[in-house]
Design a protein around this nucleic acid. Structure first.
Length: 109
DNA sequence: CGTCTGACGACAG
DNA sequence: ACTGTCGCCAGAC
């Protein structure tokens, strides 16, 4: 199991309508303090082919992380989240206390 | 094997 | 609130 696959498995567990931060995913993947790896993993991910809900991963500030090389998908992530009922304020941020995923404590799922 | 490139986050000033 | 610094590491070349 590669490091990235571990990350993808965590992301797959994020339920619809909730979000997780990069740092949170890293933590759950047993990669405490390595939030960047999560970003790298999602960057490598082929959005159109995967079943990973990549759009539910946001940064610790509650906003969508932008990337120049992202295939025009800056709006896409926001659209997908809005379709799941998540609202953004005028600064493009969301209320983390309302939407942040609170993972179940059982190791397996 | 060396170098470069990225969706982050914590912290200092 | 904003800017820079540092630690983190897999894959392409």
């Amino acid at each position: 199991m590669s490091t990235y696959n571990v990350i993808y498995q965590i992301v797959r567990q994020i339920p619809k309508g909730r979000v997780a931060t990069y740092g949170q995913v890293a933590d759950l993947a047993n990669l405490y303090g390595k939030a960047r790896l999560v970003g790298y993993a999602l960057y490598r991910l082929d959005i159109s082919l995967s079943d990973v809900p990549w759009h539910r991963v946001i940064n610790a500030k509650g906003e969508i992380s932008q990337s120049p090389s992202r295939y025009g998908g800056d709006n896409l992530q926001r659209s997908l989240l809005e379709q799941e009922g998540i609202k953004f304020n005028t600064e493009g941020k969301m209320n983390l206390r309302e939407y942040l995923w609170q993972p179940s404590l059982n190791v397996d799922d």
